[in-house]
Design a protein around this nucleic acid. Structure first.
Lengths: 142, 142
DNA sequence: CTTCTAGTGGGGACGAGTGGGGAACAAAGA
DNA sequence: TCTTTGTTCCCCACTCGTCCCCACTAGAAG
């Protein structure tokens, strides 16, 4: 299970260090792709394959699900973890997520997300303000 | 079962002593995460796993529940109790809860909460004033 | 008064994160 | 065909943070 928030930096070769505790789970291969809210999703290869087939199975009829599937499938790129625990993030994905230097890597159960640091801070503080309301609505679930 | 209120201090390495009576229940592993009202939640590992899978099961489609799940999952960090009964609270969580030196650890049945001392005092006195009203609203539950 | 333990503080070793140099390989031009 | 340029990958080196261990103090208990 991936959890936690890690503040790392991209070097000018576009390399990003993966937090140590996640490396074993990603050693067998990983896939980065465009995610929601201008973040990148990073899945272990197996998880990705499950997700990809689900996406492929989505009905062609609806424009929005089709767009969503396109976004994720077309954006996907397989990456490998190098000897010092880093992956190279393709330029077009860095551009999509607005990544420059300071990024945040977050663990979200079955995937990692990569955010530009300032974007993450904004998103987090905005969500904090709303969290009580959301928690109330979720009261019966959580 | 966790109950009680304990006043401890964070040292400048971010370490926090866990009250003795709680240590056995947390020895198998514990998880700290962002809580509500600018506090931190600290769960025994098993409790956490139940909660985490509930959060992970929330639909990706809705922006607000997605944000809430993100905040709690990404905020979470597994901690271990060291030889002298302390856990290290990650910097970003200390920042979130506004923890500096004096903190309050409270037991809330299935979890602990960690508060900045002044924030706790404010919250407690406010809640005391409102307690009659709250009690009336809870009348049918308790 | 003595002893033990909970809470606090700090020093030192190791490893994670980061940056950069250089080899290998591919593409482009002469 | 040979050379040059540029990109990618691999490896090494430095630094800062984290973890582990030990020491001290105050208060409780016998």
């Amino acid at each position: 299970m991936f959890i936690g928030e890690f503040h790392h930096t991209l070097d000018d070769k576009g390399r990003l260090a993966i937090p140590v505790k996640f490396r074993i789970d990603l050693a067998a291969g990983a896939v980065v792709t465009r995610g929601l809210d201008r973040s990148l999703f990073l899945y272990p290869k197996e998880e990705w394959e499950v997700l990809a087939s689900k996406l492929a199975a989505l009905p062609l009829g609806q424009a929005d699900t089709r767009a969503f599937a396109r976004l994720m499938l077309a954006g996907a790129m397989e990456v490998e973890i190098d000897k010092s625990g880093r992956v190279t993030v393709p330029e077009y994905l860095r551009h999509y997520a607005g990544l420059t230097k300071d990024v945040v890597v977050t663990g979200l159960f079955d995937r990692l997300e990569v955010w530009d640091e300032t974007a993450w801070k904004e998103y987090a503080s905005k969500t904090e303000r709303d969290s009580n309301d959301i928690a109330e609505r979720l009261g019966n679930i959580v």
